[in-house]
Computed example of a mutant assay.
Amino acid sequence: MSHPPSGESEQPQWGQPEQRWGETQPEQPEQPPSPYEPPGGAGEQPRWGQQPPDQPWGRPEQPWGQPPPYPPQGPYGQYGPPQGGGGPNTLAILSLVLAFVFAPAGIVLGHLAKRQIKRTGEEGDQLATWGLVLSYAFTVIGLLACCGWIGFAIWAGSGDGTTY
């Protein structure tokens, strides 16, 4: 293995193509000024992330000639569509909420949620169970209250018509 002469590094410099031992590098022609550069006399442009001296605050300007950084293409970006773990089943949540609002609807949604969770493997089985339990309990309490009210109405109206 041969070593480079003293004074030369083994690593190519940043931005320079790799040069093999004994090869000469062709001269690069000087690039003409870009038509997208601002007209001369302004001095060196600030690098990305640095503020120009006349702007002590604010967002750094986009360097001329470079496109702005865009997010990855596609509806889900670079990571793809979401995978599982999206939270509990929506029907299970609605079953629990409707147990307090309109219990019979909570019963229907609870059973639908249980079936859907078993089929898809989503989260929320306990929510659906609690929605069913509370919905059945509130339905039974509501039915007992209605029967009691009807019984009271019948009992109160069963008098002989005299008032005391």
Rank of each mutant, 00 (worst) to 15 (best):
43 G>I: 09
54 D>H: 03
92 A>Y: 01
75 P>Q: 11
81 P>E: 13
103 A>E: 03
104 P>I: 01
111 H>T: 05
107 I>C: 01
41 G>V: 06
109 L>W: 10
24 T>V: 09
101 V>T: 06
90 T>Y: 10
117 I>L: 10
25 Q>F: 08
47 R>Q: 14
23 E>F: 06
117 I>V: 11
98 L>R: 06
32 P>V: 07
39 P>Q: 02
74 G>I: 14
97 V>A: 06
61 E>R: 00
39 P>Y: 04
119 R>F: 05
25 Q>D: 04
53 P>Q: 12
113 A>K: 13
102 F>K: 15
112 L>H: 06
102 F>Q: 13
48 W>C: 08
35 P>D: 02
26 P>S: 10
39 P>V: 05
81 P>C: 09
103 A>F: 15
75 P>C: 05
115 R>D: 14
34 S>P: 09
68 P>E: 12
27 E>Y: 04
86 G>S: 07
37 E>P: 01
112 L>F: 14
27 E>S: 01
57 W>A: 12
108 V>S: 00
46 P>A: 10
99 A>N: 11
61 E>D: 09
114 K>W: 07
104 P>S: 01
98 L>F: 03
87 G>F: 11
117 I>R: 00
57 W>G: 13
96 L>S: 14
23 E>W: 07
116 Q>K: 02
56 P>Y: 10
115 R>M: 11
30 E>Y: 15
63 P>M: 12
98 L>C: 08
109 L>T: 15
21 W>N: 07
106 G>W: 00
63 P>L: 12
101 V>E: 03
109 L>F: 12
91 L>C: 08
36 Y>H: 05
41 G>A: 06
44 E>H: 02
111 H>C: 05
22 G>W: 01
60 P>H: 15
107 I>T: 09
108 V>F: 01
122 E>R: 05
83 Q>K: 15
84 G>S: 08
30 E>P: 13
107 I>L: 04
29 P>W: 10
93 I>P: 06
120 T>C: 03
106 G>V: 11
59 R>S: 12
22 G>N: 07
60 P>V: 12
35 P>M: 01
60 P>M: 04
116 Q>Y: 03
114 K>L: 09
79 Y>W: 14
35 P>Q: 06
52 P>H: 06
65 G>V: 14
119 R>N: 05
111 H>E: 07
63 P>H: 13
109 L>Y: 11
116 Q>T: 11
92 A>R: 04
113 A>L: 11
121 G>I: 13
84 G>T: 08
86 G>D: 12
55 Q>V: 15
60 P>C: 02
111 H>Y: 10
96 L>R: 13
63 P>W: 14
114 K>E: 08
20 R>A: 07
39 P>G: 03
53 P>A: 13
85 G>H: 03
41 G>K: 09
65 G>K: 01
